[in-house]
């Protein structure tokens, strides 16, 4: 056997091992899902758990079919999704813009520093009632909730990453006579992309919190409304259906951000 064949064999073994490992992981992940839902169903049927409180996968499924047929699930889901995506985009972009502003005007950043700390420490959902009174009990105030919850933390995290960019990159640009604007576009901004992506990932979750709480308060439409309605009429099948929808949609949003990350950051 020559060297080439020998290397090829070692490589094949490695690939085979990796494949096997992946299959095993996938297998157990599937088992967990199946076991979870089966156990839930069985426990509910045999009244090990109270079916009124915990419902069961089959009744959630039936409700799902009904709600799909009468188109209500689709409209509620679309509303919530729109609000969340808008809140997420507004919150993230505004946060990044504020961070850029603080970087551009260091004195402003020194002045507002204590206020940022206070705003960050404050639970933003507590502002909900004020927002609803100010903006009206409609989609605008819910989007504002989704945005406001992520805006301060985005500002702080992104601004910190702007400041931490190695000053020598700026020095390189300075030696070519670059303007402050060019420092920002050529070094500060691209160097902070990884941090921005990780804030995006955090913001996906935060926007959902803001929007659901907003819908709790406004109580007109959306998945948050379905939860609060189900709670009030003691229909926990409805509550759990909404929860499952939220879990599904937020994971999809998270996956989209991961995909975006791969597109944006080309280096290893």
């Amino acid at each position: 056997m020559n060297k080439h064949e020998w290397l090829q064999r070692i490589y094949d073994q490695h690939i085979a091992y990796e494949k096997r490992e992946k299959r095993i992981v996938r297998f157990f992940q599937t088992i967990i899902v199946i076991a979870f839902f089966s156990l839930w169903e069985i426990a509910s049927r045999f009244h090990w758990i109270d079916p009124l409180l915990f419902s069961s996968p089959s009744s959630i499924w039936h409700l799902f079919i009904t709600k799909v047929r009468d188109h209500t699930l689709f409209s509620h889901t679309t509303i919530t999704l729109t609000e969340t995506v808008l809140g997420f985009i507004v919150g993230t972009i505004a946060g990044i813009c504020f961070a850029a502003l603080l970087w551009w005007f260091p004195r402003v950043s020194k002045i507002v520093d204590p206020y940022l700390v206070i705003l960050n420490a404050m639970p933003k959902v507590a502002l909900g009632p004020i927002l609803i009174v100010a903006l009206g009990p409609n989609m605008t105030s819910i989007v504002a909730m989704g945005a406001i919850i992520s805006i301060i933390i985005t500002t702080i995290v992104v601004y910190t990453s702007f400041k931490e960019v190695d000053a020598n990159y700026i020095k390189v640009l300075q030696t070519f006579g670059a303007t402050k604007r060019q420092w920002f576009t050529e070094a500060i901004l691209p160097a902070s992309f990884p941090t921005m992506i990780s804030t995006l990932k955090v913001n996906v979750g935060l926007s959902w919190v803001g929007v659901i709480v907003g819908e709790f308060l406004v109580s007109k439409q959306g998945l948050g409304y379905m939860i609060i309605y189900g709670f009030q009429v003691f229909n926990f099948t409805l509550v759990l259906l909404s929860l499952l929808m939220i879990a599904l949609l937020s994971s999809i949003m998270y996956q989209l951000v991961s995909w975006f990350e791969k597109k944006l950051i080309k280096r290893a």
Partner: peptide, 15 residues
């Protein structure tokens, strides 16, 4: 514009 500056590390932009 008449000056070129080379630093201790390369500081090539990774992106």
């Amino acid at each position: 514009q008449t000056i070129g500056y080379m630093l201790q590390h390369d500081y090539l932009f990774p992106w």
